Simulated assay, not measured.
Amino acid sequence: MNEPVYASPSAGLPPQTALHTGRAVFTEAYAVIPHGVMRDIVTSFLPHWNDTRAWVIARPLSGFAETFSQYIVEVLPGGGSDRPEPNPEAEGVLFVVAGQASLTIDGQDHMLTPGGYAFLPPTCDWSLRNKSSEPARFHWIRKRYESVDGIAMPTAFVSNENDEPIRWMAGTNDRWGTTRFVDPTDLRHDMHVNIVTLEPGAVIPFEETHVMEHGLYVLEGKAVYRLNRDWVEVEAGDFMWLRAFCPQACYAGPGRFRYLLYKDVNRHMKLGL
């Protein structure tokens, strides 16, 4: 198996001689935020986090994607938070792309290295610190948990993508697959954050059109992605943000193409407000 590769923001600022030729686009059905626009000038600081900044690449928007937010968080050595999550109804997933993060969940310590994954249910007591000498970067995906009568809330867990198999789609000759951190039939979970892998030349050969909202952060490689009516070129470090029912398909290559995927799952549709 190839060693995992993880893109993260370019940071800094382009030189004054750079041309304005970006690929950023926001439409009624999707948005593309290219890696080249994730610069210092668009970062935010977070309450109760020290020596930390975040690129906010998705947030609930009425009439667009409404279920989740997604940050790329950078924590400098010595930084972090003992009060990271302000919303007691929020669940979260952390996925580390660079450096080391010391995560404590309900009094138990975990060291997250690149590929490290943590699921954090509502009300769990967690904190995060960078005790290393290099910056740590991770995705933080947040969603308001939808509880269901008679179904228990999921529990916290920590994993790493290196410890999870790629589950290849039937009939693809191991060319298109998903690394899943949660059993799809586990109805305690109302969101999945997975890694999708397409080997060179692999395709998603039909226009997926479904109720799930998506955040797709490209970890590695290049592809041509079908988004609604458009074919869009994307590469490592780009973020695609899709509202419900946005048609999507893909041609991957020339190298391996992988992305971190969010989707909302396993709940009835709300009827009215």
Score class of each variant (00 low, 15 high):
residue 149 D to I: 13
residue 184 P to W: 01
residue 203 V to D: 03
residue 137 R to Y: 11
residue 142 R to M: 10
residue 142 R to S: 15
residue 132 S to I: 02
residue 203 V to W: 00
residue 133 S to D: 15
residue 216 L to I: 05
residue 224 V to L: 13
residue 184 P to N: 14
residue 158 V to T: 07
residue 182 V to N: 02
residue 183 D to E: 07
residue 197 T to K: 06
residue 216 L to M: 07
residue 189 H to C: 09
residue 226 R to E: 06
residue 230 D to T: 13
residue 210 H to R: 06
residue 163 D to E: 12
residue 192 H to T: 12
residue 158 V to Q: 11
residue 155 T to W: 06
residue 194 N to I: 08
residue 151 I to Q: 02
residue 215 G to S: 04
residue 187 L to V: 07
residue 210 H to M: 02
residue 175 R to M: 13
residue 160 N to Q: 03
residue 203 V to K: 05
residue 204 I to G: 11
residue 193 V to R: 00
residue 149 D to K: 14
residue 224 V to F: 15
residue 161 E to S: 15
residue 176 W to S: 12
residue 203 V to E: 08
residue 148 V to L: 12
residue 170 A to V: 09
residue 188 R to I: 13
residue 134 E to L: 04
residue 151 I to S: 09
residue 207 E to G: 10
residue 150 G to C: 02
residue 206 F to W: 08
residue 141 I to H: 01
residue 198 L to G: 01
residue 188 R to E: 03
residue 185 T to N: 07
residue 185 T to K: 14
residue 145 Y to L: 02
residue 137 R to D: 12
residue 212 M to L: 08
residue 136 A to I: 05
residue 193 V to K: 00
residue 159 S to N: 13
residue 148 V to C: 13
residue 197 T to E: 13
residue 216 L to F: 10
residue 149 D to F: 10
residue 191 M to P: 03
residue 224 V to Y: 07
residue 158 V to A: 13
residue 218 V to F: 08
residue 214 H to A: 08
residue 196 V to P: 02
residue 182 V to S: 03
residue 136 A to H: 06
residue 151 I to L: 03
residue 163 D to N: 14
residue 209 T to W: 00
residue 134 E to Q: 12
residue 206 F to T: 11
residue 220 E to Y: 08
residue 168 W to M: 06
residue 174 D to A: 11
residue 136 A to L: 13
residue 204 I to D: 05
residue 173 N to G: 15
residue 206 F to R: 07
residue 145 Y to K: 01
residue 136 A to T: 08
residue 208 E to I: 04
residue 152 A to P: 09
residue 162 N to E: 12
residue 144 R to A: 14
residue 186 D to V: 06
residue 220 E to K: 05
residue 210 H to T: 02
residue 212 M to D: 06
residue 205 P to G: 09
residue 213 E to C: 00
residue 145 Y to H: 07
residue 137 R to A: 05
residue 170 A to T: 13
residue 177 G to Y: 06
residue 161 E to W: 12
residue 182 V to P: 01
residue 228 N to G: 02
residue 204 I to F: 05
residue 190 D to R: 02
residue 171 G to D: 05
residue 157 F to I: 12
residue 211 V to A: 14
residue 151 I to P: 04
residue 189 H to P: 08
residue 173 N to A: 15
residue 207 E to T: 07
residue 218 V to R: 01
residue 178 T to H: 00
residue 187 L to C: 00
residue 161 E to F: 08
residue 218 V to K: 00
residue 137 R to W: 12
residue 197 T to V: 12
residue 148 V to R: 09
residue 196 V to K: 02
residue 226 R to D: 01
residue 142 R to V: 11
residue 172 T to Q: 04
residue 154 P to I: 07
residue 230 D to R: 09
residue 169 M to C: 10
residue 133 S to M: 15
residue 142 R to I: 13
residue 182 V to G: 00
residue 207 E to P: 04
